[in-house]
């Protein structure tokens, strides 16, 4: 039952998104603009600053993620479907998980474009270890989106929510971003130290577990009027 609700929420969001592709296109365009701004600012005389690629990739993911998070729930608010979603005889954590998976899928799609772009513009060997990179990106995205989905859902009824989402989201998710950046920069070194990589990945998994548990625990009371 629980899994079915997660699937239904995910499928609903996916179908709405596929029909208009509004969030996907705007988010992707914004993320690409971000990377380009960094490239204009930092790449001088054709040389990218050393070790900058990891940070820029994660900043672009965080910014694009904030945009996507704001939009997903804004859609529910504009169509006044949030109440219907919450009134449905479904476990609230399942609704949360469905939304979370939707955001993770959307961000992962954006990352498939962002990674080659950053690798190209900053001359970084990001694609040299694709499996490690995929693991880092997945765990980092889940951690970021776990907090983001909860906060975006909470803020839906708040005044000035567009401003408040980044204000609340960044201080909490900074550990995830730091771990993501560090792990990615380990990958960019000439000989990869798998020991370091495993430590940062373990830390990312820890954050994911803590954030998802806290979010699942608090989603129900937070979404009750």
């Amino acid at each position: 039952m629980f899994g079915r609700i997660v699937w239904l929420v995910l499928r609903k969001d996916f179908m709405i998104e596929v029909r208009s592709l509004e969030t996907a296109y705007t988010m992707l365009f914004f993320a690409i603009s971000c990377v380009l701004v960094f490239a204009f600012a930092l790449v001088q005389e054709g040389r990218a600053p050393e070790g900058g690629a990891a940070g820029i990739l994660w900043i672009a993911i965080a910014f694009a993620g904030t945009l996507a998070l704001g939009r997903t729930f804004e859609r529910e608010r504009q169509a006044e479907t949030l109440r219907a979603l919450l009134l449905a005889p479904a476990a609230r954590p399942a609704v949360y998980l469905g939304k979370l998976l939707g955001i993770v899928a959307l961000l992962s799609a954006a990352e498939t474009v962002l990674v080659p772009l950053v690798a190209l513009l900053f001359q970084a060997p990001l694609l040299a270890h694709p499996i490690w990179l995929a693991l880092i990106l997945l765990t980092g995205t889940v951690g970021f989106a776990a907090v983001g989905t909860l906060f975006a859902a909470m803020l839906i009824r708040a005044r000035s929510r567009d401003v408040l989402l980044p204000v609340l989201l960044y201080p909490i998710t900074v550990p995830v971003i730091i771990a993501g950046v560090r792990a990615t920069s380990v990958l960019l070194e000439p000989d990869v130290n798998t020991g370091f990589l495993q430590v940062w990945l373990a830390l990312l998994v820890c954050f994911d577990v803590v954030f998802v548990t806290l979010a699942l625990w608090t989603f129900e009371p937070l979404m009750t009027d």
């Binding site: 906060f151 803020l155 009824r157 708040a158 005044r159 000035s160 609340l168 009371p221 937070l222």
Partner: peptide, 8 residues
């Protein structure tokens, strides 16, 4: 945050 910000 306006009304409801206590829970948030």
């Amino acid at each position: 945050g306006g009304p409801g910000s206590d829970k948030l």
